[in-house]
Amino acid sequence: MTFDPSIRIGVLGGGQLGRMMIQSAMNLNLEIASMDPDPNAPCKSLASHFVNGDITSYDEVLAFGEAFDVITVEIENVNVEALEELERRGKKVFPQPRVLRTIKDKGLQKQFYLDHGIPTSDFVFIDQKEELKNHTDLLPAANKLRTEGYDGRGVQIIKTEADLNKGFEAPSILEKFVDYHKEISVIVARNEKGDMETFPVVELEYHPEQNLVEFLFSPSELEEELRIKARDLAKKVISEFDMVGLLAVEMFATKDGEILVNECAPRTHNSGHHTIEGNITSQFEQHIRAILNLPLGDTSVKGSAVMINLLGHPDYSGQAKYEGIEEAMAHSGMHLHLYGKKLTKPFRKMGHATLVGDDLQALKDKAREFKESIKIIA
């Protein structure tokens, strides 16, 4: 097989995930074009060609995709009908549009798990808020919008009947809380040949109010049996979808030793950022390998890693300024990634930092210090 770096790749979405994908593609002499509704999207300065356009528009997505051999995404909220038409016209679209159609709707996604024997939490479909009162037996629970929720948005925690008024007046699901021991994630890749590789299990720690990942710990300290079970489950999910590309599978490790799938994302993901420095192959390179049907890379860890999401300070909006960066950079094993976003706002993802070393507990302690000292203000 001859590798041809002139293959034309187009990405829908121009955020930080696309930006890091482009940075990885440069090592293979590949050029990636990007389309995003933000004229100052993080990908703009790095993409070989940047289109300021609406990724939910049928006509604009179709026109963009016509210029490329392979089309991929860095966000689920795209026009699937246009991608289906591009696929009919012979373009390679990964993940496949049928997969995106299912995953972008949390209701369809959960039903898919039930239909394919994939363990997940109990849930019911909700069409309007009034129906929540009929399902108090599921409380405490999470009310999740079926579409367009991301980064903690589109999720309301319903602990008791007094919280029912917090529910969404839109199609949603009510999902029973899981009595979990750890929240974990496994990223799995699959190419057109059907080859699969999973990254080692990582543990996630969320912001208590914003439902955003604050810290990621790699590798997981779960028992080996549960780690094997989680990686096998991730392979089952991507196989049942018959998907090509990269799939992040977020799971619960329960207190009684079960692994349940929470939800998944058919793209590079926040739970894989540490792989840039912490693993032999990064999730971004692996995604490119998968969609181009190349051999998948070695996912082994190089050592311990802790990732910190760098979020906009809750009290500031405006031109971003960074406190505590110089002190962080003075620390051995610290790797900073700022996403090129000029404007900050409360809890906006502005970057991430990855600490690597040999002692995971020491890295966790240091990461918590940096979480307090690095502030993104305006």
Rank of each mutant, 00 (worst) to 15 (best):
T2K: 14
I7L: 14
V11L: 05
V11I: 10
G13Y: 04
G15I: 01
L17K: 08
M21H: 13
M26Y: 11
M26Q: 15
N29I: 02
N29M: 13
E31P: 01
E31K: 14
E31Q: 14
M35E: 09
D36L: 14
D38I: 07
L46W: 06
V51E: 08
D59W: 07
D59L: 15
D59K: 15
F64Y: 09
G65D: 13
F68D: 08
I71G: 08
I71M: 04
E74M: 05
I75P: 06
I75C: 07
A82I: 04
E87G: 01
R88H: 09
G90E: 04
P95Q: 04
Q109W: 11
K110L: 05
Q111S: 15
I118H: 11
P119Q: 03
T120A: 10
S121T: 14
F123V: 06
I126A: 04
D127F: 00
D127A: 13
E130H: 13
E131F: 01
L132C: 05
D137N: 15
D137C: 07
A142I: 15
K144V: 10
Y150N: 00
I157R: 14
D163F: 02
D163L: 00
A170F: 13
P171F: 06
S172I: 00
L174N: 12
E175G: 12
K176A: 13
V178E: 07
V178L: 13
V178G: 07
D179Q: 09
Y180L: 12
Y180V: 09
H181L: 15
K182G: 06
S185N: 11
I187K: 08
D195C: 08
M196D: 04
E197D: 02
E197N: 14
P200H: 03
P200N: 00
L204H: 01
E205N: 05
Y206T: 03
E209P: 00
L212F: 02
L212S: 11
E214Y: 05
L216I: 13
E221L: 07
E224S: 12
A230P: 15
A230S: 14
K236Y: 09
S239A: 14
S239D: 15
F241I: 09
V244Q: 06
V249H: 08
F252Q: 05
K255L: 09
G257T: 08
I259D: 11
T268W: 01
G278L: 06
Q283I: 04
Q283L: 06
F284V: 03
Q286V: 06
I288P: 01
R289N: 11
I291W: 08
I291L: 09
L292S: 09
L292D: 04
N293E: 04
N293Y: 00
G303H: 02
S304Y: 00
V306G: 05
I308Q: 12
L311G: 04
H313T: 00
P314L: 08
K321W: 12
I325H: 06
E326V: 12
A330T: 13
A330W: 12
A330I: 03
L336W: 09
H337R: 10
H337M: 05
Y339E: 01
Y339S: 05
K342T: 13
K342F: 14
L343V: 14
K345P: 01
F347P: 00
G351F: 07
H352V: 03
T354F: 02
K366G: 00
K366L: 10
K366W: 00
A367E: 12
F370W: 03
I374H: 00
I374Q: 00
